[in-house]
């Protein structure tokens, strides 16, 4: 399956991946028009800074044995047998957030505005080419690679 591989040494914390993710999920927006004040403007990835180790960009793994899928009470989170990615169906979701609790890497989060849905990486599977975050990274700190599990 395709996965976003991280090279933390190359990350300079510019947050382009963040903005690109928000924009990709804000219909009709681009890097210049994206509304970051919109309560729905939540990125599916994040970058943490550590004074010793520098920047660390973190992205959903679409885990092989995905804890979020195993914790889902509604069938909203399912592993796509073809892509291997964990896909999320907002209409099925009951917003119980067991998945948020069970994601071992703290990647998942509830939506800020309504607390009725989940903010989760969809690998931009509805868009051509690579995920928006990868395309936006000027340092090539993140790259899509085919991994065998």
């Amino acid at each position: 399956m395709k996965r976003i591989i991280i090279d933390r040494e190359k990350c300079d914390g510019c947050l382009n991946c963040n903005i690109a993710c928000i924009s990709a999920h804000q219909e009709g927006s681009n890097f210049y028009t994206v509304d970051l004040q919109d309560p729905d403007a939540q990125a599916r990835n994040f970058i943490k800074y550590d004074p010793q180790k520098g920047y660390l960009p973190l992205f959903c793994r679409h885990c092989d044995q995905a804890e979020c899928v195993l914790s889902c009470i509604s069938g909203a989170l399912e592993k796509d047998p073809l892509t291997g990615h964990v896909q999320y169906d907002e209409n099925k979701c009951a917003a119980c957030y067991m998945c948020v609790m069970n994601c071992p890497y703290g990647v998942l989060k509830p939506d800020n505005k309504s607390r009725t849905k989940l903010i989760k990486c969809d690998f931009c599977d509805d868009k051509p080419d690579d995920p928006s975050c990868v395309k936006a990274c000027p340092k090539k700190a993140i790259a899509v690679k085919e991994v065998s599990l």
Partner: peptide, 18 residues
């Protein structure tokens, strides 16, 4: 704290580890 404080990556698969 966040997972970043415990981050490790399997170089072959990119799967996270603690």
């Amino acid at each position: 704290l966040s997972y970043a404080d415990f981050y490790d990556q399997d170089p072959a698969t990119g799967e996270y580890r603690y």
